[in-house]
Design a protein around this nucleic acid. Sequence first.
DNA 1: CGTTTTTCCGTAAACGTTTACGAGAACACA
DNA 2: TGTGTTCTCGTAAACGTTTACGGAAAAACG
Lengths: 351, 351
Amino acid sequence: MLAKAGGEPSLASSIHDLARHLNISIGTVSRALNGRADVNADTRQRVLEAARELNYSPNQSGRSLRQGATRSIAFMLQPHPGDQQYGEPFFIPFLTGLQARLAEHDLDLMVVMGEPGQYQPERLRRVVETRRADAVVLANTRRKDDRIDYLSKAGFPFATLGRSQSGGDTYPSLDIDFERAGDEAVDRLVARGHRRIAAIRPSLDLNFGYLFLDGYRKALKRHGIEVDPGLIADGFINEAGGYQVTPRVMVSRDRPTAIIFNNDAMALGGCKALAEMGIRPGHDVAVIVIVDTPLCRYFSPALTAFRPSLGPMGRRLAEMLLASLPAFAGPEGTRIIREVWPLELIARESD
Amino acid sequence: MLAKAGGEPSLASSIHDLARHLNISIGTVSRALNGRADVNADTRQRVLEAARELNYSPNQSGRSLRQGATRSIAFMLQPHPGDQQYGEPFFIPFLTGLQARLAEHDLDLMVVMGEPGQYQPERLRRVVETRRADAVVLANTRRKDDRIDYLSKAGFPFATLGRSQSGGDTYPSLDIDFERAGDEAVDRLVARGHRRIAAIRPSLDLNFGYLFLDGYRKALKRHGIEVDPGLIADGFINEAGGYQVTPRVMVSRDRPTAIIFNNDAMALGGCKALAEMGIRPGHDVAVIVIVDTPLCRYFSPALTAFRPSLGPMGRRLAEMLLASLPAFAGPEGTRIIREVWPLELIARESD
DNA sequence: CGTTTTTCCGTAAACGTTTACGAGAACACA
DNA sequence: TGTGTTCTCGTAAACGTTTACGGAAAAACG
């Protein structure tokens, strides 16, 4: 068994103990602690001191039950199928920012993880139905996302990292500007003399794959370059997917001179395939990655990539979510529904 | 505002609604749902069906309050000072395994993150004192860890990833065998003809830095090689630390021919420093990293490293923690206190 | 049929809070 | 002094569960 606390203040002290110790009613104690106005300044002082002395903190289960709010937010981390380890590091800085802002409001963060590769909406349902959290943050949103449908229909507050076509405009969402990144990537490559530019993206219903391709197409058109379907390929969103699918765009008689990868893991696999074909990224073909991770930096050649500022995005999404919650809403009309953030190009060696 | 659910079953249905709907007392409903024996098979059937029909799930706050248990476990992710992004990815597979096993017992995971670089025991205290979780999992344990002292003294159940000298043998802990890894790294290098082998480790009070060095020293002695203090250096546990400190062991007139890094981020920084000195890792000096991460694999040259199996370790620590909780303890005497797991050598190009 | 056991269910208390309500005391004002 | 107002606090209900207890009905047993 665990060591027991000796003579020190028990952890299990309740508001009753405090009230008894002060010869005061629990109602007054509660009001004093919660900063209510209708309590004498002296008694408040005494209560606060006694609370510190007895090491009293209100039991959160009791508060939650009475107030109908748990003061915790659930983040659902549902890895893409096939994604074993790369997608998640992406979220760590985001989570850090998210949690930091939530902590400022005394909100805790609950993390609901799905098994990688399995889509598990029941994990989400459990949190919602047992009212374990006051709101949910979703990531890895799909183009059509049944989690969003579920939450909207249930009237449960949520926000998403990433856009979706589901659920209308009713929830706060924050996304990276994949469209613009695709556009700028093409721009940059064209400026460097490339005309045949391939695009490799995930094959799933992931929304950002579509957004990226939109930007890619738009930029090509602006430059008067015809979109060649043979230069666009979809694959599993992991290293194996990139490895498998990249050769397909390299077999056309008129090979591309540049490739834009919509995902870092796919880029790493793709570069491996290229190397095996005797094609050197950075020399024989330019490579740009849309979402930067530490791996891009340490790969050889270091991969030029577009980098989001994930920490601030986490903080921002927390703010947006809080503003959408009646209990936290500030002045009316300040609610933010959707935001799209730009990425920063980190020029390295691969393009 | 959020979309309201239409005519569908309200989320807020309580056990009272269910009881009223069935013309039955709430006590019976509760017993039926919880699989108590003293309830008729027919009524149980009816209750279960009605629960599904009315979409009823017990409110977790209510349960927690009554049972004195929240059914959630807190994981404290407290990055090392200076560690901005590398240490955390290390934890993702561990967290995944931990959460998977906890979920099998209907336990939720709460993640408490500290600001990177700040040691914030008050975050932990808050969780404990407000009884937000039933137990805590600690990572990044220090040699002397006041979090462990605090939890032991408070009699709050916890387990740790990593050993510590604090708290005695009273809590379950799971650790990587850094000592053996340091030993094996030396073994391997000596077998390849190296005699002057440097060791670079974090400067903080992190326990694994000491364990690693123990193994390193032991192996050197076994091979009759004198330990040269000039070949051992401590630095901040991040890339900058490795960059800053690695040159120090390279200035001795009798340069080392091999370096063992106790941390992947320090290895990356160290290799950068080496490159700037015109020393090529893998050619001019052998490099081995004690804890492998994806970065090691994609670095050029790919770094030979010792890899832990973090997912299974997460699952294991969950089991050990559960076995130590009275509410979950299986047959007496099966409690596991400490385990140390070996690492697997991943031979790559750098040694 | 009488007695004992078993089965099943309702009642009510309890978990630790917050808060609506009301009441007594103090005070202000005429 | 009488009346109205303000301060301050206690009382008790409520949040949604689980569970100890007891009792009625049914079953088992002689």
